[in-house]
Design a protein around this nucleic acid. Structure first.
Length: 213
DNA sequence: GTGCAGATACACT
DNA sequence: GTGTATCTGCACG
């Protein structure tokens, strides 16, 4: 199974595309990852968790473009995460690639992430991005442009599960996180722990220390 | 298993 | 100017 999907595949709402994406293979150059966990992000003004919630910015501009393009963003000052844009140009939504299993270019993937167990190579959104070598330069790449980035057909080979995304009030009734049941490469990530108070406290302590110096 | 440090882009005051 | 973020690796138990 290595047929290409068509762009139409992504010309649908994210919560429809996301579960359908499980088991498909994202290939970039020599490395291919079979998706085992994804998360859908909604439209501006509708999904507080989405980067497009507050409208268009230079960073999220790709999300407002046509479907089937890669949106790579930088977060926490050190990590990249990758999404694929859904719905027609101008709407602004995408599916986050959370985890997967390396099924092609395993040797290259191991070289990129030495000392990491095979199952952990793409187990988590930022790890997946590292393994596929997604970075700033890959933001805005077309999955259907005939270039090194492609999405291939595949089947989940397991039961598809879904659950609510954490920390979101609006989408609490609609479970927009999808994974393949029992797959060892599904990221263990916890329900987004809002460590706000801890972080605020730590930051306060740090700045207090700086002041004392 | 749990807890924390890291360091940048962006929205908001 | 300030606070948060679609998180990971490592230290520790």
């Amino acid at each position: 199974m290595s047929d290409l999907l068509t762009r139409d595949f992504f010309d649908r709402p994210t919560h429809v595309v996301a579960p359908d994406l499980l088991g498909r293979i994202v290939q970039f150059g020599p490395v291919g990852v079979r998706l085992t966990e994804v998360e859908a992000y909604g439209l501006p003004g509708q999904d507080p968790a989405s980067h497009t919630y507050r409208g268009r910015t230079p960073r999220n501009a790709v999300m407002f473009g046509p479907p089937g393009f890669l949106y790579v963003y930088f977060t926490y000052g050190m990590h990249f995460c990758a999404n694929i844009v859904c719905l027609p140009e101008g709407l602004g939504s995408a599916v986050l690639l959370r985890a997967g299993e390396v099924v092609a270019g395993l040797d290259v993937a191991r070289e990129r992430r030495t000392g990491v167990k095979d199952r952990d190579l793409a187990r988590g959104p930022a790890r997946l991005a590292m393994t596929l070598a997604f970075g700033r330069a890959q933001n805005g790449l077309d999955c259907f442009g005939g270039g090194p980035l492609r999405v291939l057909a595949g089947s989940p080979g397991g039961k598809i599960m879904s659950g609510p995304r954490t920390g979101v009030s609006t989408g609490a009734d609609t479970p927009w996180r999808f994974w393949i049941d029992g797959d060892p490469t599904v990221s263990p990530y916890r329900a987004h722990v809002p460590r706000r108070n801890d972080r605020v406290l730590r930051k306060a302590v740090r700045s207090a220390e700086n002041t004392d110096l």
